[in-house]
Each structure stands twice: as C-alpha cells, then as structure tokens.
Amino acid sequence: MGIAREHDLHKRRFSRNRGVGLALAAFVAIIFGLTVVKVSNMDVVGSYAAGSLTAGGDK
C-alpha cells in the first residue's frame, strides 16, 4: 500500500521540480521580452542608417 502514499520526500521533490519549472518559464519570458526590445531597437537603428544612406545618395 506504501507505494501510492505520498512521502515527504515526494513533496520536496515536487516543490523543487515546480520551482525549477517556474524559474525556467520566467527565464524564457525574460529572454523573449529582451529579444523583442533588442530587435525593435535594431529596427530603429536600421531605419536611421538606411535614411542616412538615402539622404547621402540624394546629394
């Protein structure tokens, strides 16, 4: 009957697994957010550089 019973060890393992899972999910969310911000900023820089080149070409 013991095998189905939840031991304190199982609770601690579950706590660890849930904690690591949530930490990894948060890490993925942070990386995703950073990527969006960095790529958006690159767009601004890219547009600026393209605009400068066009302006230079018009001269």
């Binding site: 060890l9 601690r12 706590s15 660890r16 849930r18 904690g19 690591v20």
Partner: peptide, 9 residues
C-alpha cells in the same frame, strides 16, 4: 540533495 525549493532559494 533532498531539500525543497525554498532550501535552494
């Protein structure tokens, strides 16, 4: 090695 998440935190 068998602490819960709070121990590692």
């Amino acid at each position: 090695g068998e602490g819960d998440f709070a121990d590692y935190f």
